[in-house]
């Protein structure tokens, strides 16, 4: 089923928020890091994996979810977190390592947990999959509403956890949907060099579940495939696997020189940037004027700017608090 106008505007809006969030984080991340790039410096130290270009994967799936549903995400989690409804102020403060962050600065950008909307992520490839299967089992055992979504990258499809989790979810017929964001690169290694088959959705057949391939980073097509898979999960039909062709417009992490990319690849990807494409689609199909668009962009920027302001103005927790919250 295609998304209606309201759903499409929600999707577009969250793509805008996510993109502007990443662009803003990118600028702040570079503060204090140059002239010789030093990852430990600046207001946002550490690794930073930006999701520019991958927004359709987040909004096309999360448009079907409520706060009750469970999402496990990856080391590149911001777009999905935003679409899942993670508290943007607290998430931003967490990325800055501040006391007002989701975990008071203990987790950082790769370890975002917001229990209120059942969102979590892991910095270890494919390791959110087992927990998603377990959360789905929990809902089944408790006869409670909710599906679990496990996001992974295409590189994760070669991990043991991928194959084990698909098998277990299928054997137990659990309400879980596995989403592969195929951005073609596992850091510097191309999918073609790491994966024995061209399309990972074909691997679904080995585990007795439907597999979907969505091409061209198309938010509408993602919405349609995810809608079918999520409906199957909600109605007791078991798990599905969706591989989405998406674009990583940024490096693997900030500071990545991307010398491994073939010449011209980045330009070709930017030419297919999903955000202007979605804007054109809205203008062509709905009564979506320039002023409507400008208003939505402005609203998205204000939301992000407010979150950045909140994070910047927050204090660091006293360092001794590092000793707390190991146990409850």
């Amino acid at each position: 089923m295609k998304p209606n106008r309201e759903q499409q505007l929600w999707m577009y809006e969250h793509m805008l928020i996510s993109r502007y969030f990443e662009e803003t984080i990118e600028k702040i991340y570079m503060e204090g890091k140059l002239p010789a790039f030093n990852m430990a410096n600046g207001p946002i130290p550490g690794e930073m994996h930006l999701s520019n270009g991958q927004e359709p994967c987040a909004v096309g799936v999360c448009a079907h979810l409520t706060a009750t549903d469970i999402v496990t995400s990856t080391h590149r989690p911001h777009h999905v977190a935003i679409a899942k409804g993670v508290d943007l102020n607290k998430m931003t403060a967490e990325i800055f390592g501040k006391a007002t962050g989701l975990s008071g600065g203990r987790g950082g950008h790769m370890h975002i947990f917001d229990a209120k909307v059942n969102f979590s992520c892991s910095g270890i490839i494919a390791q959110g999959m087992g927990p998603a299967v377990g959360a789905a089992l929990s809902r089944k055992l408790q006869n409670k509403e909710g599906v679990a979504i496990a996001y992974i990258g295409e590189g994760a499809a070669n991990q043991g956890a991928f194959h084990e989790s698909l098998n277990l979810a299928s054997v137990w017929k659990l309400p879980v949907v596995f989403i592969i964001e195929d951005n073609a690169w596992g850091i510097s290694v191309a999918k073609t060099a790491s994966t024995a088959i061209e399309r990972n959705d074909q691997r679904a057949a080995a585990y007795g579940m439907p597999g979907y391939a969505v091409e061209n980073n198309d938010p509408i097509a993602i919405f349609e495939a995810a809608g079918e898979a999520i409906e199957r999960a909600r109605s007791g039909g078991g798990p599905s696997l969706i591989e989405i062709e998406t674009y990583r417009l940024a490096g693997h992490f900030m500071g990545d020189a991307e010398g491994y990319r073939p010449k011209g690849e980045k330009d070709a990807l930017f030419a297919k940037d999903p955000i202007p494409k979605f804007r054109e689609h809205l203008a062509a199909n709905f009564d979506w004027s320039n002023s409507d668009d400008e208003a939505m962009v402005k609203k998205a920027h204000e939301k992000v700017d407010a979150a950045i302001e909140f994070a910047r103005n927050s204090e660091y927790a006293p360092v001794e608090e590092a000793l707390e919250k190991v146990f409850v």
Binding site: S120, G130, P131, V133, G134, S138, A161, E164, S165, L168
Partner: peptide, 13 residues
């Protein structure tokens, strides 16, 4: 790998 991960997910839920 799958069922240990599942234990984490079920407990968190």
């Amino acid at each position: 790998t799958a069922f240990m991960g599942a234990a984490v997910g079920a407990a968190s839920d």
